[in-house]
Simulated assay, not measured.
Amino acid sequence: MRRGTRYGALLGPLLAGGARPDLVERAARGLGLPERGRYAVVVLGSPVPEGAVVEGPDVDGARWWWGGADGSPGGAEGRGEGRGETREVAVVLLGPAGPDRVVARLRELGAGPGGVSPVVGSPAEVAAAHRLAGTALLTCEPGSREIVRLDERLPAALLVSRPELSTRLLAEVFGPLLTLVPAERSLLVETLEAWLECGGSVGRAAARLGCHRNTVFNRLRRLERLTARSLSRPRELVDLVLALDVLRLSSAPAGPGGGG
């Protein structure tokens, strides 16, 4: 992994978008980036960990070019500016293991939160990958150390890309739920999350939560009444899942959990 003012200056035209093709070509040549290859962009919301910046390829054969702090909002209409994140950006020429190894390497280094773009095929596509990596970063929960690939978070990425619609969705679906005291709200949200993670099994959700299955059933029925949406109707379930994602990504916590 490489870093320095020289690399940062050369990466600028690749990352910013809108640069003339000759500038992109010159920058790629200066960095030693092949005209065709498998590239991904990483955007971190925290400083690059110590030990991440070294010369030469890593064990997978991937080559990294760190461009330093990134002041852009990550292509999601400025949503990143409100989180106070220090953005660090890297262009990665992937090795045989592809982007999964990039994610694993960043986790090994204790980096995060961070977003990894889809794979693109040339330096000319790096600017678009940069925007998508920034959007992936915005799907990480506030305060987390997640490293996520955009392709794993596409529904959430759509939500963070349109914050005004996300806010409206949350109010429309979870409005009555949000009026509850924090502990009560958190209990219903935790139960819904457990039920979803257990594939819609009330029994497995009860085992995970450490309560009776009837308790889970009653909480879910109450949530249905509050939201006027049924977990058994696919379109209404989509509304609930998306609203849950908006709540998860909100900087305001759902509140402390409770028993029962």
Rank of each mutant, 00 (worst) to 15 (best):
R3S: 14
T5F: 02
R6E: 15
G8T: 13
A9N: 05
L10K: 01
L11Q: 08
A16H: 12
A19C: 06
R20E: 15
R26W: 09
A27C: 03
G32S: 13
G32Y: 06
L33W: 13
P34Q: 10
G37A: 15
A40I: 05
V41Q: 04
V42M: 10
V42Q: 11
G45R: 01
S46D: 04
P47M: 02
V48M: 01
P49Q: 06
A52Y: 10
D60W: 13
D60G: 11
G61N: 11
A62T: 12
A62C: 09
W65H: 08
G67P: 11
G71K: 05
G71T: 14
A76E: 05
E77L: 12
G78Q: 04
R79C: 12
E81H: 11
E81W: 11
G84F: 09
R87A: 06
R87S: 02
V92H: 00
L94T: 04
P96I: 12
A97T: 09
D100Y: 07
A104W: 07
L106I: 02
P113M: 09
P113C: 03
G115E: 07
V116L: 02
V119E: 07
V120N: 09
G121Q: 08
S122P: 04
P123Q: 10
A124T: 14
A128R: 09
R131D: 04
L132S: 00
G134W: 03
A136S: 06
T139V: 09
C140M: 01
E141C: 01
E146L: 06
E146R: 07
V148Q: 06
L150C: 06
D151P: 01
D151E: 15
E152A: 12
A156G: 02
A156F: 01
V160Q: 06
R162A: 14
P163A: 13
E164D: 14
L165P: 02
T167E: 15
V173E: 07
F174P: 01
P176M: 07
L177P: 01
L177F: 05
L178H: 01
L178E: 08
V181I: 10
E184S: 13
R185T: 11
L187S: 13
L187T: 14
L188S: 03
V189G: 02
E193C: 03
C198T: 14
V202Y: 12
V202A: 12
A205H: 05
R208H: 14
R208E: 15
L209C: 12
C211G: 08
C211H: 08
H212W: 14
N214Q: 15
R225N: 12
L226M: 10
A228D: 12
R229G: 09
R229Y: 10
L231W: 09
R235D: 14
E236G: 05
E236Y: 04
D239S: 13
L240F: 05
L240I: 08
L242M: 06
A243H: 01
L244D: 06
D245P: 00
D245H: 07
L247K: 02
A254P: 10
G257D: 10
